[in-house]
Amino acid sequence: MSRRTLGTKVLMHVLLVPFLIFALFPFYHMLLTSLKQDRELYDRFAVPLAIKQGPTLEHYTKLLRETEFLTWTKNSLMVTVLATTASVIIGTVAAYALSRLKFRGVNSFGTGIFVTYLVPTSLLFLPLAQVINWIGLADSKWALVVTYPTFLVPFCTWLLMGYFRTVPKEVEECAMVDGATRIQALWRIVLPIAIPGLVCAVLFAFTLSWNEFIYALTFTSSSEQITASVGVTSELIRGDIYFWGELMAGAILGSVPIVILYVFFLDYYVSGLTAGAVK
């Protein structure tokens, strides 16, 4: 490598530094805050960028022992797993029908799915809260299991349609000539080829429902029913006294499941993100 290209390469990295600091600093600061002793945390003359007086896990133990944090996390997990499973299944069959089968109304249904995909949750939370009341799911985490698919199914359908279109029709037709039914062909031929797409759909559905906030905040309120995001933002803040250490510990722990998935499936996140918009 010539000196000039090496210079350019180094320059590119230097230019990236501000972006990386912007992206990562909030997490660094949250982590730091959650590990600091109160004495240092509320010392206005201390340097906030480092831990000088020794780290502590006190905020984490308090969070786990004195609050319902574990219940909220369990609720989040239950809601997320059920909503994701249901949505990926419903989305898979719908996407298959839309990308492969010819029947009356296929085009208008495709448009309908796309429009629903674009409807923001904040447009419908008020009337949905009433519908939830009427069907008797007020203040229940089941309300979330039922409503999360409204934004997950259009997303999964849209994402998977892109993947199904990349599976050559001939492969499927071959199987059907050999006597397989369409459903067998879908199950044995198309789905295995589309596994990257399915992984993507599962990951994104999981992330979207874990991160969902406005429905969870509106449809659930009691401490046994709320999810991690809602619990940390509403139950840990009482009156005007904020327990910043516990608050940051809650924000960190509440993000852990997503971070774990993210570390293992980074490439799927990148490809899924672009598939939604570019495909």
Partner: peptide
């Protein structure tokens, strides 16, 4: 680098905004 850049987008917004609130 890509992983770091994408991180703010995958973390629950309500929780990461708490961090900004503190900042």
């Amino acid at each position: 680098i890509r992983g770091a850049v994408l991180l703010p987008w995958v973390i629950p917004t309500a929780l990461s905004t708490l961090g900004w609130w503190w900042m």
